[in-house]
Amino acid sequence: MSLVIEGLSKQYTKSIQALKHISLTVSDGESIGIVGESGSGKSTLARILLGLEPYKEGSVTYKGKLIVPKNRSSLRAYRKSVQMIFQDSTSTLNPKLPIWKSLLEPLDNYKEFSPSFLEQGLTKLEKAEKLLEIVGLDKEMFSRYPVELSGGQKQRVSIARAISLEPSLLVCDEPTASLDMTIQVQILQLLKELQRKTNMTILFISHDIRAVAYLCERMIVLKEGLMVDEFKMADIYHSDRHPYTKALIKAASID
């Protein structure tokens, strides 16, 4: 078991409770979908997993180690193994910086680490080119600025940046929500292929059940901070499903 969440609650103010007693175990190499609508607490969960948000109740442990947001030295090791992709690829890249600078920021922070897919002694630009190739982009793109790239290309750059430290857990917060349908599928395919190659765990947060069904083996459903359902993809039509899940499935099915 790699990621264990136990009784996690998060309260913003007295009246707003973002998460209520979430318990979840995710094993290595698994891909799990977290489905919920806005306000369901799914983004809060992502931020807590990344150590960006403090929490009081419950515990989050990764590979046996407790995640404490304030402890910078323990976070450093943790962040190397946990990375995140965000929804809006436009705002995750600094418009003033060329692609390669944004791309190499994580590697630059962990100078002692050299990922297995990069040979020793590469220059910075060679590293950037290599990373771009991995996510299926033209390697000439390293010198461009974000404004010159399409939404899908920018999302690929974000993915390249996130996997550059070879994380064992990748948290994706609605990575395809703002993309066109054809591009959306390409990004999902890329994630799937990367997961197959590196065996990383993927936590895929989305409101799109169809995308989750494509990528994930297991799905949990959040509603107003509560985990209302958890099931393997094969049991998606099981009669035990929560009414809310059923409604979501009905909305997502084509026939």
Binding site: L52, Q83, M84, F86, N94, S102, P106, Y110, S158, L165
Partner: peptide
């Protein structure tokens, strides 16, 4: 508040960086 600052935090850049 822009996300690339958050991303920078996620990739563990120091505040100074």
């Amino acid at each position: 508040e822009k996300e690339y600052v958050l991303v920078s935090k996620v990739s563990f850049s120091s505040a100074f960086k």
